[in-house]
Design a protein around this nucleic acid. Structure first.
Lengths: 139, 139
DNA sequence: CTTTAAACTTGTAATCAATTCAAATTTGTT
DNA sequence: AACAAATTTGAATTGATTACAAGTTTAAAG
């Protein structure tokens, strides 16, 4: 599915800037920060403002078209993949990976459900530690 | 267990300030922010600096004596309860609750384990939505 | 086509949580 | 008591994010 269809699906009008940001998110599974997205797109759309990237990502998150991850202290990170999955951040290299341990689906599927009177609309599961590549280097 | 024993357990020297912060965390299960802790303790220890509260909480988190929760956009929140549990943040009133759906223990117990070569040292599970009290008011 | 209003984008300025840093104080040790 | 290490302090700085007001684009109606 392309960026245009993805935006339409979430009732977001497809401006040039929004399409570019969505396209970037769909093509890069790296969970980029605002700065990374801005730096990548600025050469292509020279008039692009960083404020627009902020506005756009906030809009995406509100409409459910992207996930905002607060998995690291400094920057928010964004994910265009809104399917059920968790995230892993390596404390060595800082990279953020999609993560899918067996137990996760069950847990995330609590979404939209009600427990003890609490209405769950969003679930975030964050793991931290050493990624495969950094763990091997340690040896 | 008192604040002193708690600190000793995690190899943290018990200064006046550290004891006060730890004591506050153990007595208030509200997942307070730095500001909340500082504002509460400043009247008691007038010389207290906010930098000390920052330093202290960072130290606690590094030693595993407290949890740093990035469950909300603006401030970090802290939890003196380091046992296995998840958190729920109400998007209406902003309060952060301890939360313990059945599936959580299993998920959090991945801690210190290895999956696909990834070494997990920390797990955070965040739920967002409407808390019981705010959900009832909505009707 | 024009006109017009709404939606969107832009850049600057402001905010504010968190960190840096160097000086002052406290603590533990000989 | 004297010294070194650890801790605390507050002022200054950083840096991600937001606010805002002006400029631009888009879409719909005449």
């Amino acid at each position: 599915m392309g960026a245009k269809e993805h935006l339409e699906k979430y009732d977001i009008r497809p401006s040039i800037q929004r399409l570019a940001v969505m396209d970037y998110l769909l093509r890069h599974k790296t969970h980029p920060t605002v700065d990374e997205i801005y730096s990548a797109l600025n050469p292509v759309i020279p008039t692009l403002s960083k404020t627009t990237v902020y506005n756009t990502l906030k809009l995406f998150a509100e409409h459910g078209a992207a996930l905002a991850l607060s998995i690291e202290e400094k920057n928010l990170r964004f994910d265009g993949d809104t399917s059920v999955h968790a995230h892993f951040r390596c404390s060595e290299c800082g990279e953020v990976f999609d993560f899918f341990p067996e137990q996760v689906p069950e847990l995330l599927s609590l979404n939209k459900s009600e427990i003890d009177g609490f209405l769950i609309t969003e679930t975030q599961v964050y793991y931290k530690g050493l990624c495969k590549s950094c763990a091997e280097k340690r040896k």
